[in-house]
Amino acid sequence: MNPTVQFSLLLCAFLVIVLACVKPLGRYIAGCMDGEANLARRIGGPVEGLLYRVCGIDPAEEMSWSRYALAMLLFNGLGVLVLYALQRLQVWLPLNPQHLPAVSADSSFNTAVSFVSNTNWQGYAGESTLSYLVQMAGLAVQNFLSAATGIAVAVAVIRGFARHSSRTIGNFWADLTRSTLYVLLPLSVVLALVLASQGVIQNFDAYRDAKTLEVQTYQNPQLDAAGNPLRDAAGNAVTVSATTQTQTLPMGPVASQEAIKELGTNGGGFFNANSAHPYENPTPLTNFLEMFAIVVIPFALTYTFGLMVGDTRQGWALLAAMLVLFVALTAVAFRSEQAGNPLIAAQGVDQVASDLQSGGNMEGKETRFGIAASALFVAVTTATSCGAVNTMHDSLMPLGGLVPLILMQLGELAPGGVGTGIYSILMFAVLGVFIAGLMIGRTPEYLGKKIEAFEMKMASVFILTTPFIVLFGTAVAVMCTAGVAGIANPGPHGFSEILYAFSSAANNNGSAFGGLSANTPFYNIATGLAMWFGRFWPIVATLAIAGSLAAKKRIPVTEGTMPTHGPLFVSLLLGSILLIGVLTYVPALALGPIVEHFMLVAAR
């Protein structure tokens, strides 16, 4: 089959199935979060009530935006401490059949912030670093709680738009509990069972050794005393050749973690190879289901938004903007990868698609998934805040690698992470109506609320915080020895590796250009700080807007009111997103993937 046709069919089937779930799931989420009596709440109600009683919480007690933010910060701050302690103490804790030692302090800090902030950036290899207890009681628990935090914040922000003359935006503890109990847990149980039925493993066995048929030779990178990779005079990594005929097969409770990894747009793999590992993602069906699970909640939240503000057309308009960005950039990723590498083609390597191969640039990709399913996964995982990978992003063509970079740098809002996607695009909607208001000389309004100075200041904090962290972090890293030491490919691609790392960390994605050796004190601290501030400062600004909007009176719709559910508004929204993204990041992108592309063209 023609690869373009194959990709188009895959993309269409994917979008049809996802969009078919938007309305029912969006309605279900709205019902659960607003306390509607549905089947899930009847079943889970006693557990929910018990949790409130044990924790001394009154779910009906409403919170101002600042109380909501402080509760959210307290909960997540404690989450960091617990996860840090679990890693540092794992050698003395149960469920550690490999007797893995305590994780280093800098890596524990990085991983704790990473999983609490829904980033799931992994500087370590899970199977050789973390015990089953830490994977389950630490990482998997935070997979649920960080995603639930995202949904809670999103619902609070939606209430800010939906309510009027109100000083409160809901109760964080109730929102957190409901999103975990009624949204994430049931979906995760179902998906975990389906994944297990397809071959994703779920056990507590010790790792198994298998003797390979052939002796394998590999290059072992050498590290200095500080853990940084050693380099020769030319700046290339120093490696030592080694051989083995033993392959260790890691085991573990993977299926249960895999489900929430995707549904919560977390992305942290049980194994280092993430969803490229056959125990995490064994078949094309699991690959499809994992992509579906990543985007379904973020897309559905647009309908939840529409329902909660009383006009579902508003939600469809946001979804339309998300879809335009998503489809356009997915197509670029596919075209770039399917075209292959001209330098390899010049050496006589066949990169043409046929019945026997996918063709194109297959470096870093699984042959069982091919170009189409890999390119779609690349877009899915970076259009959300997931960061799970089934292909190695560092091996993408320059323009193929540009796509995940841009998707992250635009703020991951097409459709974005669980919860984060909807509130991120709402911040751009606020900006969009503000720009429109400036153009026509009217006070900007959105959903019957005047957008005034305070909202614009908060939207500015929201929109500028992340780019500042990305660009400042990248600049510091390329100017200091510890930052440059991690680069695997000196030159523009090395710059891209660092830019990608900070784009991923600050936008809470977690995927990486894996050539960067990031498990060093410098990167563990720098990306740890980027993940925390990239997650929680925008959330605080968003909640502040929610609190301000909730307190406002609703303005009646008049002939002068700009409709925010039609193509004009969608175009305005897309224009705002692209304008901010382009102005902010094009200079940096020009130094990395763009110049790398031109170098490739020149070399050809």
């Binding site: 600042s66 933010a69 302090a105 305070f454 908060m458 601290i525 700080l529 400062w537 605080v540």
Partner: peptide, 30 residues
């Protein structure tokens, strides 16, 4: 070593709580 990283956690936490306080002051009592 742990004290350094736990101190860092406390630092970023307090800075974010400070942001809540500052934005709340900017807006006025909520």
């Amino acid at each position: 070593m742990d004290a350094v990283y736990l101190g860092m956690v406390a630092g970023v936490y307090l800075l974010t709580v400070g942001l809540v306080w500052a934005l709340n002051r900017l807006r006025g009592p909520s």
